[in-house]
Amino acid sequence: MAGSVLSIKDLHVAIEGKEILKGVNLEIKGGEIHAIMGPNGTGKSTLSSAIMGHPKYEITSGSVTLDGEDVLEMEVDERAKAGLFLAMQYPSEINGVTNADFLRSAVNSRREEGKEISLMKFIRTMDSKMELLEMDPDMAQRYLNEGFSGGEKKRNEILQLMMIEPKIAILDEIDSGLDIDALKVVSKGINEMRGEDFGCLIITHYQRLLNYITPDHVHVMMQGRVVKSGGPELAQRLESEGYDWIKKELGIEDETVGHEA
């Protein structure tokens, strides 16, 4: 079976009445890795939150479909079960719920009643993924994200990604706050997922993550729109020359839009 297609068309999104996204168009297919780059405050994180269904964001027009199904009509959990995943920039901390219990609920939510994953199989799978991500085994029994360091939270997001195996994943600044070793580990996890059935949208400020995960497509966002798209070489040029040349080329003075939440 060929991979899934996430299609975003002319998406407009507002937060508290203020328009942040002003017509985003993107198509991500299984097997492809896309990177969205851009300075702070240009709408990158808004895009990822809006696709997943964050309660604060209001879609004012446009469409998001996954394999033709209207994503925007779905509840958040239905979006996840349809195959979407968002590695969040600021994952919630949930007291009293262990990481392992949470992960098992997440895995089982995709299975029918009576066909839940066996505890042994679950633990084996989780242990092996945690080892790959060089996570302390204790983290399975710690409360979800509570007291986790920034780096631990990011690894934990990737652990969830690997356990859930979505069709399309959006990684929102998964590299921010990571030292180079952690960055390598997180990249290893993401690369492990690569394949025909897995599409990925990576949102980042920095080119350095793309040294470890080579994207197929690179997009630049400014003023709530995708203003430029290209191949991996676009990221290279941004790294060496910054964003000013794009602003100049497009006649943009202030690249930001509203404020990025």
């Binding site: 959990d77 919630s92 949470f102 409360y143």
Partner: peptide, 25 residues
């Protein structure tokens, strides 16, 4: 918290259940 749990495929009911049990743990 609900949004986070639901974004992993967990239904609202189950997410609330997890949060409440955690709260009383």
């Amino acid at each position: 918290q609900l949004y986070y749990l639901m974004s992993r495929g967990i239904s609202q009911k189950e997410a609330e259940r997890l949060i409440i049990h955690g709260f009383l743990a």
